[in-house]
Simulated scan of single mutants.
Amino acid sequence: MNFPERFANLPVATWPRLRGLLDSVPPGGDVINMTIGEPQHAFPKFVTDTVMDALPDLNKYPNNNGIPELLEAMAGFLNRRYGVTIPTDRIMALNGTREGLYNALMAICPETKGGAKPNVLVPNPFYQVYAVAALSVAATPVYVPATKETGHLPDFAGLDGKTLDQTAVVYICSPANPQGAVADHDYWKNLFELAVKHDFVVFADECYSEVYRDTPPIGALEVAEEVGLNPERLIVFHSLSKRSNLAGMRSGFCVAGPEPIARIRSLRAYAGAPLPGPFQAVAAKVWADDTHVAESRALYQEKYAVADEVLGDLPGYMSPVAGFFLWLPVKDGETAALKLWSETGVRVLPGAYLSHGEGAYNPGKSYIRVALVAPKEDVRQGLIKLKSCLYG
């Protein structure tokens, strides 16, 4: 059976592509994996006991939308972090935000806009789920460069009016993966003005919001409340994966206006899988606790300092203000990643594997992404080897 024609331009999955590049070549030293953004810090100690206490719930079907305690904890997080009060009936518990980022588009993207196929705007580089979701609903993904010239955030306002008028949904990630750039107040305000003018919905992926250097990144919800944005025009996504080092637990949530959240919940009744009951009980306690988040963030701040110390004198080095990736300029990302692996055993990700386009038109081609998730001394050794191999 062939894929539908709309999947002809499906992006090649990042990790099989990386394995194809590196795995046939022996590492040139002790392996230090700096590719995947899988947090390695300890998760809260109370998680294990809470899981054990909640295991009897495995004989019950999990609540599709999220148990009341979980939704209340999520609303409490939003209030503490952003100063907004969101009713729990506008929050949907997710089995990881990847599910939500995909299924929310399935639930709300129209089949046509103005009598033609709708556009879905995607930052470039991007999290690949954005593009795959657009193709799945037979929309046209429009890749908007997020480069040094645009502050590593997509310049949606620079698009022509026809493209924007045909747009149904805009994906935006802040803090950005992979560059660590943060959308400020004016960026959000301007984006919301475009949403109103051109009649589209903003999908704000804020999964890295709790990993930052100094200042907590401003959130879409607080700016939306300030400017009086219709809540139907914004869906915001959050996750415990990065915030609490619980990538395997798959606890995330989305916040939306009454109509979008109703559509997302309706789709979940037929497709997708709710978070298992024991994990919902655990997640409620984790979302309600901020102490472990601050402790984990302090460890990332130490690794920011290591990166600045080792790489700060390199031309083009950009010290991230948030997130846990370095976006390092090289001549060619694939060549650099293969050289680094074969000569040192340090494993990084070519930037082109996160971007759309051919040759010079791929905004990630001349970068590598380096994850700062390993223990601090492993990060230090990896960056020292990286610098000597690629920039020495």
Score class of each variant (00 low, 15 high):
residue 265 R to C: 04
residue 195 A to P: 02
residue 133 A to Q: 01
residue 303 K to M: 03
residue 372 L to Q: 02
residue 268 R to G: 11
residue 167 T to S: 12
residue 70 L to I: 05
residue 301 Q to E: 05
residue 355 S to T: 12
residue 374 A to R: 08
residue 31 V to K: 05
residue 117 K to G: 05
residue 312 G to V: 01
residue 78 L to F: 06
residue 254 C to I: 00
residue 174 S to P: 10
residue 387 K to F: 01
residue 309 E to R: 13
residue 300 Y to L: 06
residue 226 E to P: 04
residue 121 L to W: 06
residue 291 T to M: 10
residue 200 F to D: 05
residue 253 F to Q: 03
residue 368 I to N: 06
residue 338 L to W: 10
residue 32 I to L: 15
residue 167 T to L: 09
residue 23 D to Q: 14
residue 237 F to C: 14
residue 370 V to H: 01
residue 206 E to W: 02
residue 90 R to I: 00
residue 264 I to E: 02
residue 6 R to Y: 09
residue 189 K to H: 13
residue 126 F to P: 05
residue 272 G to W: 09
residue 10 L to K: 11
residue 117 K to Y: 04
residue 25 V to A: 13
residue 51 V to L: 15
residue 290 D to W: 12
residue 179 Q to S: 15
residue 94 L to N: 05
residue 58 L to Q: 11
residue 53 D to M: 13
residue 131 A to F: 09
residue 218 I to Y: 09
residue 1 M to E: 11
residue 312 G to S: 04
residue 97 T to W: 05
residue 156 F to L: 14
residue 220 A to M: 09
residue 354 L to T: 13
residue 358 E to M: 12
residue 164 L to N: 05
residue 176 A to M: 08
residue 167 T to Q: 06
residue 123 P to Q: 06
residue 90 R to E: 00
residue 18 L to Y: 14
residue 330 V to S: 06
residue 175 P to Q: 07
residue 217 P to Y: 00
residue 367 Y to L: 00
residue 152 H to N: 15
residue 106 M to F: 12
residue 90 R to F: 04
residue 219 G to Y: 09
residue 34 M to A: 01
residue 138 A to W: 08
residue 248 G to T: 15
residue 91 I to K: 00
residue 204 A to Y: 02
residue 80 R to C: 02
residue 302 E to Y: 11
residue 355 S to K: 12
residue 387 K to Y: 03
residue 288 A to W: 08
residue 270 Y to A: 10
residue 197 K to E: 14
residue 201 V to E: 03
residue 287 W to K: 04
residue 47 V to K: 05
residue 120 V to D: 07
residue 198 H to I: 07
residue 18 L to R: 09
residue 1 M to Y: 10
residue 334 E to V: 15
residue 144 V to G: 07
residue 321 V to T: 11
residue 180 G to H: 01
residue 112 T to K: 15
residue 313 D to N: 13
residue 329 P to C: 01
residue 191 L to E: 02
residue 290 D to C: 11
residue 31 V to Y: 10
residue 161 G to N: 15
residue 121 L to G: 07
residue 212 Y to M: 03
residue 344 T to S: 06
residue 284 A to L: 08
residue 214 D to A: 12
residue 112 T to P: 07
residue 366 S to Q: 10
residue 5 E to Y: 09
residue 200 F to S: 06
residue 266 S to H: 14
residue 103 N to C: 03
residue 289 D to G: 05
residue 209 S to E: 12
residue 210 E to H: 12
residue 95 N to M: 14
residue 282 V to N: 08
residue 343 E to L: 07
residue 97 T to I: 14
residue 43 F to G: 15
residue 216 P to S: 09
